[in-house]
Amino acid sequence: MTKVNVYIPTLNGGQHFIALLDALAAQHAPITQHVVIDSGSTDGTVEAARAEGFEVMGLGDAGFDHGGTRQRAIDAYPQADVYIFLTQDAIPADESALTNIIRVFDDPQIGMAYGRQLPHKGATVMEAHARLFNYPPQTQIRGLADADTYGIKTISCSNSFAAYRRSAFEGVGGFPRGTIMGEDVIVAGRLLLDGWKMAYVGDACVYHSHAYSLREEFERYFDIGVFHNDNRWIFDSFGKADSEGFRYALSEIRYVVRRKPWLLPKVCCSFVAKWLGYKLGLSYRSLPLRLRKAFSMYKAYWGRG
């Protein structure tokens, strides 16, 4: 039987994390170990996880690092065939979510998989659109040969709900350390370049969305720009997104006009914030450290030497 571990990085997870614990307890899939790697919660997150029998570990001296922290959890608890990652606010939508994502590994060509993200109940219209646009209901298997069709979207994925085959994951060296974000995309890219395939699993669903303010949109896209600048090789290998951004914008305008047209000015401001953040992120090397830090959502990243 396939041995599966679940890993969740946490920091003051709050009510979403409690809901996640409940949803995990209800899963049909047998899980060997649940591991929480906590960044110093003070709201009872650690205690709640321990009460559910989770292994809890701290960050150590290294501080939080999207790839490094997750890799640290795997290094501490490596004994599984499939590693599942969730974020503390990604709540399985039903009891079969984990079963469905694990099942795709029956295909020996699949190296990683990621699940569908649905907007949280009460999500804003823009949050809802983002999830519906990026996470359709249809399952899809993608390999390197699809890069001509999908470009960089070939390796689109998210560690909010993702699973990795251990042998494939180790073969590409695990998660990279010291990347501002996108450790999941880097691993997916390495896997496809090494001949593995990845699965988007439309029937493995979690509720996961964020209500970002304008400033947060800006910061998030600044970080995306930094990531793209630092990892241009991914685009050289898989191609660019081409008109995807434009398609997304049009889709969002249509979606909002049909539902809450008075929010259009906010949508337009959000486009400007994203565009500006992304462009600044792309040219981050010519910004002084204090501006990089100010513009970034992941402030601690810039603290290192």
């Binding site: 400033r215 462009k279 501006l291």
Partner: peptide, 20 residues
């Protein structure tokens, strides 16, 4: 947020250079 972004745009337009 918009004011803050505008400030950022200004910083970009001014061609801020690395000094530290």
């Amino acid at each position: 947020g918009i004011i803050w972004i505008g400030g950022s745009l200004l910083a970009l337009a001014c061609g801020v250079r690395v000094n530290h």
